[in-house]
Design a protein around this nucleic acid. Sequence first.
DNA 1: CCACTATTGCTTTTT
DNA 2: GCAATAGTGG
Length: 763
Amino acid sequence: MDNLATADSSPPHSLAPDQLTPAQRTAVDHFEGPLLVLAGPGSGKTRVITRRMARLVERGVDPRQILAVTFTNKAAEEMAARVERLAGGRPVAVSTFHRFCARLLRDHAELVGLQANYTILDTTDQKQVVRTVLDELNLDAVHFPPARISGRISRAKNEQQTAESLQANSVSRVGNHFQEVVARVYPRYQDFLLRANAVDFDDLLLHVQQLLTENPELRSRLDQQYRFVMVDEYQDTNLVQYGIVRLLSHDHPNLCVTGDPDQSIYGWRGARVDNILRFEQDYPDATVVRLEENFRSTAAILRSADQLIAHNQLRKAKSLITQNPEGDAVELLVYGSAQDEAHGISARIHELVSRNECTYGDCAVFYRVNSMSRQLEQALSRWGIPYQVIAGVAFFERAEVKDLLGYLRLIENPADDAAFARVVNKPPRRIGKVTQSKLARYATTEKINRLEAAAHAKQIPNLSKPATTALLRFHELIDGLNLADAGSVAELLRTIIDRTRYTAGWQTGLGKSSEQDIQRQAVIDELLALATQYDEDLGDERSLAGFLEITSLVADTDAIDPSQGNVTLMTLHAAKGLEFPTVFVAGVEQNLLPHERSLRDDNPREIEEERRLLFVGMTRAIDRLSLTLAAQRDLHGQSRSTIPSQFLNEMQLSMRDNTIPGDTAVPRPPLPDAGNTMGRSGMADSPLLTTGAALLNGTGEAATLEQGFAVGMAVRHPRYGRGTVVAVDGFARNRTVTVRFEDSDEGVSFQAAHCPLQPLGRS
DNA sequence: CCACTATTGCTTTTT
DNA sequence: GCAATAGTGG
């Protein structure tokens, strides 16, 4: 089951579980004082950290005195489970930076001007808030895109620039319109958040830093409480995180950080590699351990990766060593089009699996941008290969999820005007733009939140009668909802869906529902399942705040599920910390990897980060690694010729050209027939939906079928199983296929061009 | 004054 | 190919 695992498991080439190299041993046995572990890819870093934590407990350190911080929930959970196992069942707290801060802030909210029931805004909410502020300033969102503005605000926060200092800064730089606008929006944005008792992701960290800086007694108490602090992926910390870590390890500098400057890929998010590079200056008596031997990849893979990364100038020289066997050379596969590339990869996986060289779950495909998953999904679908996409359309980004969570947020924190704006007219209850802006104006002048203002609708000037009653009814609706009455989060969600008649508008009637509605319902069911799980896990401890905290701070990478036996598709960023026997990196082209944005102003730092990104991707591979590219790729709908990535010239590769025009160099899947499609795919008729990612798996887009569909044709859907086509309507893009699946009375309609239906032949 | 449909434009990476 | 806007009918 562990074919996808972090570095600590035991891949074929690794040391026996109990064995440690001398360097690893030094790190594990290190007790007090600062420790820096510089760990190359596949060097057993996770194993070292977990072993060290267990060792601390063994030496009598109370687990509550250990604070371990990672960047993803997935990493945190895995680490916690592993340490607990090693430490004889004693739980050790492992948390992400954001979660740790969220908890701390919950306990001390009033010290930074918040209340304990504050809510966390996501990027969509942030953009919405920016939009509101732009409106107030009479600026248009077309000329000043909210996404860019909130990005700049986020960057400012990461660099510890307050609204005031940014303003001061931009005044000195006259002429920069955009910067000026950002400086004007920032303080109002922040004001909105504070009034809404809400924080954004950056605030979680920033508020905690402020908390620790301004309250020395609290700081020293926490410093004392967390006598041992461990930070994983230290090269990814930003200035604020760096500050927090330092504030917590002042009196007890038993700080252990681990990381690899060559795997720093979050510079764009404010991460500072310098943090790890200057650790030895920050803590002159630090012990430094270098883990350079790789236990993961073949020598061939490692050699190419090493050659690549050696081209980074702004780097301390370091080479990767391994005693692993040579293995196959790293391949470069060149295809004529993105479609060929996708089919080529699928064919390759199909071949490897049918020759029993690996399983589907052993394979991963990485790419630079999420939008590249679509074509890969289509091809894999056509080949009948089961796959999971990490963060295709993220589960928690789905409108239904955000709406329902919006209701929960508003119930928990009535001051959350962002949540109010999100749900006040969802589903449509005749509270449109005009009414909302009158309400907002009134709320602002009266200095009350919007929900309260809705209760006073009769006092709002120029409000039409129907609008007034609609607002009053909405207020009543929210007022009548709470966790105590509902009994559990899941029950509360059901009550919300029921009372708002949330799904009422969906039934397109005539005894058939659309594919879209089925998906939306599935999303809701998934959220309910998640809530039920939460209710069970927490028992009497359950709270809305707790549930919202979990749902706000999850990442899509958390959904990676190795046990499913699926090919895994994800971005290069999401791939960090994982390993797979067979890896494909797709789209290794100039302007894509390196991304065009990094080439734009010829900044070597950015190009080096792109190089590290490819390095990270390559070093995930255990046995087989292929880099692929397409000579032509669609960009904004237009097909364009591409240029091979500059990185390809920097390493040893064995090239295979599959671009012979009009030829069969790229195989297409064998024609489907009822007999062997099932056997080949290895897919269950209706797989269980377990995670958000798995849920969305296979439903995105799909095959364009040359032969089309006809009434009476037997088809198979990756999720709903076998069925028969009962109707075909419309033309071209509007063509829909209605299918009746086995054990179902209803027909389900699909867009012919965009569904993963596989024809099985006539029945 | 609101809801719905057609149309234009922009698209890294993520806690 | 999506999401914010413009336009139209109710």
